[in-house]
Design a protein around this nucleic acid. Structure first.
Lengths: 214, 214
DNA sequence: GTCTATAACCGGATAGAC
DNA sequence: GTCTATCCGGTTATAGAC
């Protein structure tokens, strides 16, 4: 029985293609995150991928093709981060797991979040044409889920959309503002211990707020 | 007695200089927010300011000089947003006022926040050399203030730094991710009514969280 | 599929007339 | 102080040998 993501029975050529494509996407994610779409050069992407520039253009005819591909990958990962919404129906469990995974992502793969942020900040034209529909669909489903919890009295009557923005903002902040955070943290990257504290802190604030129980 | 920000007794030449400088900075803020530092062109900045390109170079010799100036202005405004910390010592009052002002800023002057975000995302080299010290100084003072509140039992024992990040993240999200938010809001900008709801929502979450009182 | 060489273009910065 | 014309370096994309 073949696995759905069959990777094995490929010819040598197909394997090379697969590997190079992968290398280029990883490199592009890094370079786009540092320079934005306009500032990134195919020369630097190629150098980061350790490949001649012409080869990058061989796999991805234009810089924009590559950029779109990078963004699609990021959205796919973010939607996967939310699978707990389909597994549990206890808001405390779901929010904790979702926040945990998004924070993990912010630390293990910060470039992706940064590319996404830059794309949206700079007008989101690729978002508009290639990514909006997927996000809107996922968003509607999730908002519905949170609304149900409110109707069941499991949550205070907050606006689900703004809650979701708050979770995105607080978690992605640690990827996007990494350099500022590092500067404030005396120039050192956050330790694994701090990372765990951050998850607890965000969960604490989202679930209970900062005021003491009266 | 002369006012500290004396603007009146200027020669015609000096006034022109002042006005042009202002026009260029405003235009630059917009263009940098859409393209990032590398992607922005002096040509486009000049066009937005309705000035010949050479004039932009006359007032700001290099693109980086202009960029630094734009960023300095933004940080100045953000620090001003926090003046309530010096006025009140009631955390509920302070956080509400601070969140309110930062959100207002996100809607009335979204370009600035975007330029700052892009600068940090893309490595923060100008932040490092020109802005870090001011931010660190302000940050240390504010963290101390929040720590005092915790010691006095006015707040739960959360980490003040992560609380501050949460407030920055949730408020600036509405400036930085404006285009994504608009897409989710059926393509329409948020109304004044929604803006007020957002302030309430963030204050609610930060102060009390989302779980119902048991 | 790979890679060197190059075409075609564009951007920051400046010279120099007004 | 203003603005046109231009230089020079760098960018995307491709042609064409291997």
């Amino acid at each position: 029985m073949k696995s759905k993501t069959s990777e094995k029975p490929l010819s040598a050529k197909a394997r090379v293609r697969r590997e190079n494509t992968r290398k280029i996407i990883i490199a592009a994610e890094e370079v786009f995150s540092k320079k934005g779409f306009e500032g990134a050069t195919t020369r630097e992407i190629a150098a980061t991928a350790v490949l001649p520039k012409a080869n990058v253009h061989y796999y991805f005819p234009t810089k924009e093709d590559l950029y779109v591909r990078v963004l699609e990958d990021i959205l796919k990962e973010w939607i996967a981060d939310a699978e707990i919404f389909d597994i549990s129906s206890d808001p405390e469990t779901v929010f904790r797991a979702y926040i945990e995974r998004k924070i993990q992502h912010s630390f293990t793969r910060p470039f992706g979040s940064k590319v996404w942020a830059m794309e949206i900040i700079s007008g989101g034209q690729v978002f508009e044409t290639h990514l909006k529909q997927s996000l809107l669909k996922w968003n509607a489903k999730t908002i519905q889920q949170i609304s149900d919890w409110i109707a069941e009295g499991k949550l205070r009557p907050i606006n689900p959309q703004y809650l979701l923005y708050a979770i995105w903002a607080t978690t992605q902040h640690y990827a996007d503002f990494e350099y500022q955070i590092r500067a404030i943290n005396r120039g050192k990257s956050l330790s694994p211990k701090q990372t765990n504290e951050i998850v607890d802190n965000i969960v604490q604030i989202v679930l209970h707020g900062v005021l003491p129980v009266v």
